[in-house]
Design a protein around this nucleic acid. Structure first.
Lengths: 196, 196
DNA sequence: CCTTAACTTCACAAATTTCTGAAGTAAGCG
DNA sequence: CGCTTACTTCAGAAATTTGTGAAGTTAAGG
């Protein structure tokens, strides 16, 4: 976003109009400096963000989406703007844009537009996080399709066909089970944290 | 994780000493129903292998391991040698080696040495397939560690800390549930297929 | 309207990953 | 014993992925 042009650097951010984390109930106690980053030890935040992101990367998530997601998780409001993300993570607006596109696609973040502003906020809901994990179901569905096809073309009575059948049965089983598990989780969560 | 049912499968590969190095000729092509699938349509097998592998790749598995794994799944014996894999997939021994190393590391295949031969067979057990999926637990454990650290350094009473806590609780919950689910699966499987 | 802020898309440079041929190692077999 | 087979490791070429600057698009605000 920096024009890398003339010397004047006073980002309009200094103004920070009616920004306010009027998000949740307004009584954000951390209340210190700018929008999000500094009631807390920014270094501690960064350490967590990079560490957790590294784990996600290792599990297969691309680097930028992982860092953006971790930053959102670690934010107090659970929602940050593109500019805030870019600053905290030291990445270009283009990188933020790409990362957010990825995360939205896998349902890990949702986009909100603040009315009366051009800003968009990218939000992580705990629920989405869980759902997204669950949404590996979509992937499994395709695995199942491929397996069914394999059983059909290799013959259900051949040894290979039987192996594929069993694998297929496993996925079908898991699919049902996971759904039940998520239902139990919601109950469990409410017991732990109260209906949120 | 109780299992070790043992007594898995009788080794169906008795003789099978036929080598068939169709490699050296220019005639590496269909018709290669050598050691493994005499009687099956090699084209149908290949179609399944490539299709299923593509799904795995899309889910994040590297290409060669995915293809090798799919080929093993689709084999009648559930075990193939390096040469057989190389021929069917048209890849170099080095590629087979790398793929197998990867698969063994994530516990998707095991290596067996045929006594009295230098050959090694790479085998897929249905059980391993399930276990491997389950073994994402190892990954989750590390996520949990990172989250605990985050809760500690951001403060369990901050909004961000609470979000991380909830996520952590979710993973801990899932971990327990998955184990129970796998136990149920084994029972279910035995009902479907009979204790194998 | 015209300006400007916020985000997106595009093209390309850089880093990383993937797969191969070739050389290396180990073990059965003549 | 030493030849041969079966697999592994290594170095590097090729392909793919990643992140950036810059131009493009949309919409608020004067």
């Amino acid at each position: 976003m920096a024009e890398s042009k003339s010397g004047d650097e006073p980002e309009p951010e200094a103004e920070l109009e009616a920004e306010l984390e009027a998000e949740t109930g307004g009584d954000v106690q951390a209340g210190a400096e700018s929008a999000e980053g500094a009631g807390r030890d920014p270094e501690a935040v960064s350490r967590f963000v990079e560490h957790f992101a590294a784990q996600l990367v290792e599990a297969g998530m691309p680097r930028m989406p992982a860092r953006v997601f971790a930053a959102l998780l670690a934010s107090d409001t659970g929602a940050l703007t593109s500019a805030e993300l870019g600053e905290q993570l030291q990445i270009s607006p283009a990188a933020v844009s790409g990362a957010v596109r990825y995360l939205a696609q896998v349902h890990l973040v949702s986009r909100e537009r603040e009315p009366g502003s051009r800003r968009e906020r990218y939000r992580v809901h705990s629920d989405q996080w869980y759902e997204a994990l669950t949404n590996r179901e979509a992937i499994m569905k395709r695995w199942e399709d491929a397996l069914r096809e394999g059983v059909a073309s290799l013959g259900a009575d051949s040894p290979a066909g039987r192996r594929l059948s069993e694998t297929l049965a496993f996925f079908e089983f898991v699919e049902v089970e996971v759904e039940a598990m998520m239902a139990r989780w919601r109950i469990h969560r409410d017991q732990l944290f109260g209906a949120d």
